[in-house]
Design a protein around this nucleic acid. Structure first.
Length: 908
RNA sequence: GCAGGUAUAGCUCAGCGGGAGAGCACUCGCCUCACACGCGAGGGGUCGCUGGUUCAAUCCCAGCUACCUGCACCA
């Protein structure tokens, strides 16, 4: 026989009841996100509800998506970022704005090229064998086949982007914008070419901007090398972390004030292996206290040495090729890879007794942010953007508030960076990207920069010209995103309607990469800021607070979360934790908590639908019916929730909005209101039933609209199943609640709070005293004022039902039962006759606990109010409030003490 | 080294100068006719440390300690 936790009768009752529910309710017993999400999203998308109309008369609200990499897959950062944008977009759309949320992806030059190069490698060839043209074709093909997966994943999240406008940074239009910007900046003298040390990735074979290099402390060594002083038996000892670069040394340097080496300044040392005599120079850059106070100088392979070399007019000897292999300047080491060369140089120095010693040493090594290869400072000719004149207006715009950075602590970071800008290296030696529109003349060596591909040199007219083989940094095109996506350089209706954008939502990690550069380009080319607000959100970390990364294996895949818990629960979790200025530590059980919240909403709605079968929403006339205190209470709380939500959203306090809605939904609506109206729904009074049906409907329908930006799927699904006709095809275009038409009655709400306090007091005694939940009890409620008595008499039914009270007496100067548990709230004394329910000792214990709490209160206020300084200085409302609280506490203590005395006398 | 941030219940975090809050976890009692992804009740905190301002400080100011994140790094 199968063991069942239920008796046969109970099981049967269950089966019958479930059957009844299935017939009565249109909704399933638990919320099942899968089908709902797929179905609803499809309807929205096919209905064109995400589309923006630039010809609309409505006020505009626009957001451009931070374009994810075309190679990317959705991670937690994207999920948070796009959830917040979607909340804003849906909120504004419902609030009557014409909303454009512009989606798209960027071409991620290096990352995408790497993907396709790996493909080629697996086929046993490389891009050079394939050739530039065919390689670029392959990349396009790759994008066609497997790029942009993230777009479909954003849809799973519920993102309401205008997909018909989806853009890609390599699109024709955006490429045209890139070209226009390059040419104009060049013509304005803001783009130039220079031969400098740059960060070079020997694996990607390209230059990187300063921002694309990530520094990480690594364990290494400090080698002390002995350089023989020319024409002497002396040696100078230099310390270095990179011994192989000695092949490119063109000097050694000491501090001019260093007494140890005064006599050597101006002399030379003989460099081993390459047999070069190099000078000993004096420069204040050298720190006398570090190492030996002597530095080897390699101008072609170190940024500091490069600067020093310029001061002393030293030659720059490049010893590497573009793969980091020693070139023919490296003498015997020519052809060796840099680390191999290092090992050999060290070994050979040692055998020549030129290695003084080796120490362990930790220092920060720059790595390529795309492939983690150690970058090489490399001397090469590159294109730069001169940022000074572009940065000035961008700084001013934020200072003057044309663009607001939220939270404002990020402003400081923005300014810090803007004030210390280096020129931006924009050329990349890869093939995938916007090719630099510059042509070099074989004849006159002039450069032709042009909007249209030229056929002749603009200087000498020669047709022997060839285009620069480099492409532009991906961030160059991303910097134009807010206007290039809207059709610039053409003057479009879209730009007129939606530029500048209303808000940019992004993570702080790309504040410099992207936000600052968009500011510069927007102001330069649109003469206006690209966005009014910039909302910087947190980073999503794992439950331990660590950055999620594949190598740590602590990534939570958003799509798995959506599969398991539903998009709405996931979104609500992210939103709840999106407090300003703090990172999000995400763990699965938190998501489960919000899954439960979805289920709660679902079941409250099921309850409502079951009880609204015979209800016609058109009959609702809240103004004309006599509402109960409970009705007025829930409606007042609802309006309060509406206002709080609005304020929170306006201030980008997403977590506040979420918690306000959570608390109202669960604790006000479900825990109290639904419980309060059951008597009237199931009772025999048709007018009472219709009244609570009206309020139930209004509250639920309003709540769904309030919640929709946060939980789009479940709210639409329920909303569509409400009785009667909806004012629009989709909740997406139903007006966002503003509280109008909903009566607010704070006095009634206060009355209801008293009733609820009494119910809580009864439940407290029951719970503390282990009275079985099903057991009906007796209660005597002694009121010290007419007002309380009247309020509680009106709440009688609620007290009976929710307190499980069968015999209830409410009034003043009542006859008190001889043995009763006592509880006090406000000026109301609640007496629960023991009559065998509770034993006296337990009640004594409980009373003692209550008394100690009350006594603490009394002492607290007594002390506070006996302080003359407080009486003299505190504002009168604070004073009055505290006096009232003291009186209340004293009254409560008195009642409890009297009750205890009585109990103890009984016990004896 | 410079800058910024953070320290509040076991965990994760809200918090607006006037008696410390939530969610989760925990304890007790419940399959009560929307929901056990649930209901009711309860326990739990010297608000990092030291000073200062104030009638009043978790909140404002200064210093200290610890952790986090940027940026810059002396080879």
């Amino acid at each position: 026989m199968i063991k069942s936790p239920f008796s046969f009768q109970e099981t049967l009752k269950h089966i019958l009841w479930e059957g009844f529910l299935a017939m009565e309710s249109k909704l399933a017993k638990g919320y099942e996100p899968h089908d709902v999400e797929r179905k609803r999203y499809q309807i929205w998308e096919e209905g064109g509800y995400f589309c923006a109309n630039e010809f609309s008369q409505k006020p505009s609200y626009s957001i451009v998506i931070p374009p994810p990499n075309v190679t990317g897959v959705l991670h937690m950062g994207h999920a948070l970022n796009n959830t917040l944008q979607d909340i804003l977009a849906r909120w504004k759309r419902m609030s009557g704005y014409e909303v454009l949320w512009m989606p798209g992806t960027d071409h991620a030059g290096i990352a995408t090229q790497n993907v396709v190069e790996k493909q080629l490698a697996s086929e046993g060839c490389d891009r050079h064998e394939v050739g530039r043209e065919r390689f670029v074709e392959r990349v396009w093909q790759w994008r066609e086949d497997s790029g942009g997966q993230i777009i479909e994943q954003l849809k799973r999240l519920g993102a309401s982007c205008d997909w018909q406008r989806e853009r890609f940074t390599m699109d024709e239009g955006l490429s045209k914008a890139v070209r226009e910007v390059f040419v104009r900046l060049y013509e304005d003298g803001l783009i130039y070419r220079a031969n400098r040390l740059i960060n070079w990735c020997p694996r990607c074979h390209t230059a990187l901007s300063d921002l694309e290099v990530e520094h990480e402390d690594k364990k290494g060594h400090l080698w002390y090398l002995r350089y023989p002083v020319a024409g002497s038996e002396r040696h100078l000892i230099v310390a270095t972390t990179r011994p192989e670069t000695m092949l490119g040394d063109t000097a050694v340097a000491v501090n001019p004030d260093d007494e140890r080496y005064q006599d050597l300044i101006g002399q030379s040392v003989r460099l081993p292996f390459v047999d070069r005599v190099i000078p000993i120079v004096a420069d204040s850059y050298v720190d006398m206290n570090f190492g030996t106070g002597v530095v080897k100088i390699t101008p072609a392979h170190d940024f500091n040495d490069f600067e020093l070399g310029k001061r002393h007019d030293l030659p720059q000897i490049n010893i590497f090729d573009e793969s980091g292999i020693i070139n023919d300047q490296g003498g015997p080491y020519s052809g060796q890879e840099r680390y191999e060369a290092r090992a050999n140089v060290v070994a050979d120095l040692e055998s020549l007794e030129l290695l003084e010693k080796v120490e362990n040493y930790q220092n920060a090594v720059g790595e390529c942010y795309r492939c983690r290869t150690v970058i090489e400072p490399f001397l090469s000719l590159q294109w730069y953007v001169k940022v000074d004149s572009l940065a000035q207006p961008s700084i001013k715009a934020v200072q003057e508030g044309s663009t607001r950075i939220v939270p404002d602590q990020w402003q400081k970071t923005y300014f810090d960076w803007m004030f210390n800008l280096q020129d931006w290296c924009i050329s990349r030696q890869i093939w995938w990207g916007h090719r630099i529109p510059a042509w070099y003349c074989e004849q006159c060596e002039g450069i032709t920069v042009s909007r249209e591909d030229p056929s002749a040199c603009s200087h000498c007219g020669s047709s022997k010209i060839s285009q620069d083989s480099d492409v532009l940094d991906t961030w160059f095109s991303s910097a134009l995103w807010p206007f290039s996506t809207m059709g610039w350089p053409d003057k479009t209706e879209t730009l007129a309607k939606f530029y500048p954008t209303s808000c940019l939502v992004t993570g702080f990690d790309i504040l410099f990469f992207w936000v600052a550069r968009m500011m510069m380009m927007g102001l330069k080319f649109m003469n206006d800021v690209p966005f009014q607000d910039v909302y910087i959100h947190a980073l999503v970390r794992d439950a331990q607070g660590q950055k999620m990364s594949k190598s740590k294996g602590n990534v939570i895949d958003p799509l798995h979360v959506i599969d398991e818990y539903g998009a709405d629960a996931f979104r609500f979790t992210l939103t709840s934790f999106a407090a300003m200025g703090r990172d999000i530590k995400l763990s699965i059980d938190r998501i489960a908590g919000y899954r439960n919240f979805c289920n709660k909403l679902w079941n409250a709605s099921r309850f409502a639908l079951m009880n609204l079968n015979d209800f016609d929403p058109d009959s609702v006339e809240l103004e004309r019916i006599e509402l109960s205190d409970a009705d007025r209470w829930v409606l007042t709380r609802l309006v309060d929730t509406i206002h709080r939500t609005k304020v929170a959203l306006e201030e980008y306090k997403f977590n506040d909005a979420a918690s306000t809605l959570y608390t109202f939904t669960w604790h006000s609506f479900c825990d109290w209101y639904i419980e309060l109206i059951k008597d009237e729904l199931y009772g025999g009074d048709p007018s009472a039933k219709q009244r609570v049906q009206s309020v139930l409907f209004v509250v639920l329908e309003t709540l769904l609209r309030l919640l929709h930006p946060f939980m789009p799927f479940i709210t639409e699904e329920i909303w569509q199943n409400l009785p009667g006709l909806r004012p629009s095809d989709t909740i997406m275009y139903a007006p966002y609640p503003d509280g109008r038409g909903i009566p607010v009655d704070t006095h009634a709400a206060e009355r209801m709070d008293l009733v609820m306090d009494v119910i809580r007091a009864i439940r407290n005694v029951r719970g503390e005293m282990d009275v079985p939940p099903g057991k009906q009890i007796e209660a005597v409620i002694e009121c010290k004022s007419d007002k309380s008595a009247a309020v509680l008499e009106r709440g009688e039914l609620a007290i009976r039902t929710l307190g499980k009270v069968s015999q209830l007496t409410i009034g003043q100067n009542l006859e008190k039962p001889s043995q009763a548990a006592t509880q006090v709230t406000g000026d109301v004394e609640i007496l629960l006759p023991l009559s065998g329910l509770v034993n006296v000792d337990e009640e004594i214990q409980r009373l003692k606990k209550e008394i100690s709490k009350a006594r603490k209160d009394v002492d607290f206020f007594k002390k506070k109010l006996s302080n003359e300084q407080f009486l003299a200085n505190a504002p009168s409302e604070v004073l009055q409030k505290d006096q009232r609280k003291q009186a209340e506490a004293e009254k409560k203590l008195g009642i409890l003490l009297a009750s205890l005395e009585k109990m103890e006398s009984l016990g004896l």
